[in-house]
Design a protein around this nucleic acid. Structure first.
Lengths: 339, 339
DNA sequence: AGGAGAGATGAATACGTATCCATACACCCA
DNA sequence: TGGGTGTATGGATACGTATTCATCTCTCCT
């Protein structure tokens, strides 16, 4: 490692004061052009890099944002990370990543706010509110919830129309003649799972679809869970459903794989619908009909809200709810969704 | 946000000096038990959190490690991130994430070292060395390369036996009677792609396998690229290969999907082998034979090396090369690999 | 010609912590 | 009883930057 060069070193080499170096680097007005270029030459030649700790000590800004994700191996989250990175980069912001499922990730992220290690935090996990999160929100910490809602909280939130879209999926099944349907859900602690389950269940009831309780199983948002859930449905000793709604794509892929292993033809004998429209949903191997979450848009808004919140901590919180579009693919025979 | 409480505030409230607060929080010896508990009580009651910038200003440590990944939507990287997070957490270390494919990720990560924003950097991208990286290595910056090698560099490196394993895959094809083989490769800038391509190509030549140049195509490590590559092979106007080696799983999945779309039966008419053994390779939809990279082990060693390097910057660099095991699945008819 | 005002720069300071050095006190042994 | 030894604590300082305030030098106008 190069010995750390400070702005004072640069100042000495350029024959100016440290204050002048700082001003040059910030493009402040009132610097003689000749001085300016002399300083920049030294900066260039020495490869000077400002010390991040000192800057953040002085400015109380870190230029870093935290993000809490669920299991990062769930392909939904990499897409969020991808969008988030792209959204933050133009602002010169960095990203610290915490996994909510391993160890004290969520708590560590919240502590990082108080330690002034990050300027703000994006929560993307669809998990219930912990006391720590609740407390942080009460303290008006700069937090944005994406894809998770905590009703009535003084906190910026962005999600999509989970309940409404799930209702549309139930209607879609009914419109195309299905009578017995199933659902692969996930922990009700997750607001997304809860909203999607509720929407689907309620609309199914309204429409007179038969949703046997043995056809409502927890898939834990995972491939393995989705697969096991469909296997259990087929094995329940009653007539299996002809259409299944999985509350996320990953468990939907698991269901498709269970059907494939059991020799059940999709979509002839079984329709499967997922949620998220991850990239893989369009792969030939799955061709999964699913609800498209507008991830880039959600993330864009989330970043916008977070930066605004950091700039104006007392601004009233807002809640954005974006529409979700159903993308029809082969897992439901390309049958159209009613307008 | 709570008004920032400092160690001085805690000291005042506990009736001691700031130095004593610092000592208590570090568990230093020579503190009266009564003083100690009084300080801790105030810390508890006020919810004091030490200021990260001040600590890192004083100690020249950040407790944060950087990681540069390729496109994070390539499922290989989330598995690396997962392992990395799990490995760092017990050390109390955080993770800043940079995507090498979007914007100036790689350069930003390297600059972060000089800015003392991170204590060290893990490179997981299989991309060629940039001048910036080269320069950082020359300066002996605390960097570990995982899954990427730069021969002869004074830099800690961890990879797996890419070339050797690729040779074994060629032999595997030959052993089971294949004559015409194909390869879906990727940019030779990536040391992994280069090593795997070389190993497969050389061994195929040694064994007299026919590897037509029209059956060697770049799949760009992506699903779409792998799919397009296989489509072009089938469309080349010559007899297609009976076995294809894809230098990573993702492009292997693409190949499988191309075969599925074209009505080519795997493994009856075509064998496909990937590389990485990502979780999805074992899914029913793919059942892809592939080379297992020991990700957790590689990451474990990488973190160990990085921490050692940070503690002892001048220690001679080491290069770990781990064995890769071929996992046989349905995409090669479960045919055994020769011992 | 003299002073006002603008432009350019430097000196000083605070951010919050860890640690070095100094100090005060109690206790023990010769 | 006095000096020495050890224990517990406080004062002072430096880390590197951004920014406020002060200073100095011109230029220009009356």
């Amino acid at each position: 490692m190069a010995g750390a060069i400070t702005s004072r070193d640069v100042a000495r080499l350029a024959g100016v004061s440290q204050a002048t170096v700082s001003r040059v680097l910030h493009g402040s007005a009132g610097i003689a052009p000749e001085t300016r270029s002399r300083v920049l030459a030294v900066v260039e030649q020495t490869g000077y890099q400002p010390n991040a700790a000192a800057i953040s000590m002085r400015t109380r800004r870190t230029g870093t944002v935290g993000v809490v994700v669920g299991r990062v191996t769930n392909p939904f989250y990499p897409q969020v990370l991808d969008a988030l990175g792209a959204e933050l980069e133009p602002h010169g912001l960095r990203l610290i990543l915490w996994d909510a499922t391993t160890g004290p990730g969520e708590r560590a992220a919240i502590e990082a706010i108080d330690q002034r290690r990050i300027d703000g935090l994006v929560f993307t996990t669809a998990t219930a509110s912990s006391p720590a999160l609740q407390h942080a929100i009460d303290r008006r910490a700069p937090i944005v919830l994406v894809n998770r809602v905590v009703e009535g909280q003084p906190c910026d939130q962005v999600d999509s129309a989970n309940e409404d879209t799930a209702r549309r999926i139930a209607r879609y099944f009914a419109d195309h003649g299905h009578k017995r349907v199933g659902m692969i859900t996930a922990s009700a602690d997750a607001s997304t799972a809860a909203a999607r389950s509720t929407g689907f269940t309620d609309e199914a009831a309204d429409l007179g679809l038969h949703l046997d309780e043995r056809h409502v199983l927890d898939g834990g948002f995972s491939h393995e869970g989705g697969r096991a859930a469909l296997e259990r449905m087929l094995d329940a000793g009653i007539e299996p459903p002809t259409a299944v709604f999985a509350v996320n794509d990953l468990s939907g892929f698991g269901a498709l794989d269970a059907a494939r292993a059991a020799g059940i033809a999709v979509p002839d004998d079984l329709w499967v619908v997922g949620y998220d429209d991850t990239e893989m949903a369009s792969w030939e191997a799955f061709q999964l009909t699913t609800a498209r979450q507008p991830i880039p848009e959600m993330v864009r808004i989330a970043v916008e809200l977070l930066l605004a919140r950091i700039a104006a901590p007392t601004r009233p919180p807002v809640h954005h709810r974006l529409p979700s579009e159903i993308v029809v693919r082969h897992s439901t025979a390309h049958a159209p969704v009613r307008a």
